[in-house]
């Protein structure tokens, strides 16, 4: 296999080097890529969509159809990981472990019985106490991470950012919680069902916005149709339309990240993972 690999690699590399000789010089302002479509995007975006961040405008308006499927790709991956790994109806262990939250006393209780008071939380056999410093620092940081994530989504029109970046930051804040505490802590705050439904809802917000434009009489994803619903002029409607779909993207990406992480880290058992 090593020799096949080497031969294939060298062939591909040789072809690519051969072709690179005909490329326009790197960073040349007069290359075809920089002179054909991009001047239009750079010069006209502001008057056509009223969004100063050209990348956001091209992403969520000119090529919004690509981006819709990009969100769908993430969603498909979430569903695929779920269907591959999630195991239901695993035989419940005979005894469960519970831990008293305040004192840290751990109890083993037979199946069918409940812990003596509400101060107990259920833990898995592999449970290890989270480190106090890591736990505290993460608790302090998570709210700020989440506010930053919301800022990145909302401010995508004016600065680098947008739904994907903000969604990943929000997802990371929840994954940090799962790593510093455990998966049960996360599931208690955000159940698996909620997570899975929100993934679909996020993409649905995106595709639904497009379909709404279609129902309002213009082409699919033509946000200027939203002008009559949002009571703004068609140009501003494009800007608002971009914000709506970015929010959808943010929700979808955040939830899918958490969904994939939970399934992969616990091998689909939704227990203490890693």
């Amino acid at each position: 296999m090593k020799i096949t690999g080497l031969i294939v690699t060298i062939l591909v590399g040789g072809l690519l080097i051969y072709a690179a000789a005909d490329f326009p010089a790197w960073s040349d302002p007069n290359s075809p890529a920089s002179t054909y479509l991009s001047p239009h995007f750079i010069e006209k975006t502001m008057e056509e969509t009223s969004v100063p961040n050209i990348v956001t405008a091209v992403l969520a308006d000119y090529r919004s159809f690509d981006t819709m499927f990009e969100t769908t790709v993430i969603f498909s991956a979430g569903v695929a990981v779920f269907i591959l790994l999630r195991t239901f109806r695993r035989k419940e262990p005979e005894a469960r472990h519970y831990r008293h939250v305040l004192t840290g006393v751990t109890m083993r209780i037979k199946e069918g019985k409940l812990p003596p008071s509400d101060d107990f939380e259920r833990i898995d056999t592999l449970w290890t106490p989270p480190d106090l410093i890591i736990k505290t620092v993460c608790r302090l940081l998570i709210p700020f991470i989440q506010i930053f994530g919301l800022y990145v989504i909302a401010h995508g029109h004016h600065s680098p950012g947008g739904g994907f970046q903000g969604g990943v930051i929000l997802g990371a804040s929840i994954i940090v919680l799962a790593i510093s505490h455990n998966l049960r802590t996360v599931v208690k705050r955000m159940s698996e069902k909620l997570d899975a439904v929100l993934c679909a809802v996020g993409v649905l917000i995106y595709a639904g916005t497009g379909a709404l434009c279609l129902l309002l009489g213009l082409n699919f994803m033509d946000y200027s149709a939203l002008a009559s619903v949002l009571f703004v002029d068609p140009i501003m409607a494009r800007s608002h339309g971009i914000l709506i779909v970015e929010i959808g993207v943010g929700i979808a990406v955040m939830c899918t990240m958490v969904w994939i992480y939970s399934n992969v880290s616990s091998r689909g058992r939704y227990e203490q993972g890693l």
Binding site: L37, N219, F220, Y223
Partner: peptide, 9 residues
């Protein structure tokens, strides 16, 4: 799609 003319959209 999106009402943009082809090479743009």
């Amino acid at each position: 799609l999106g009402g943009w003319d082809p090479p743009m959209g």
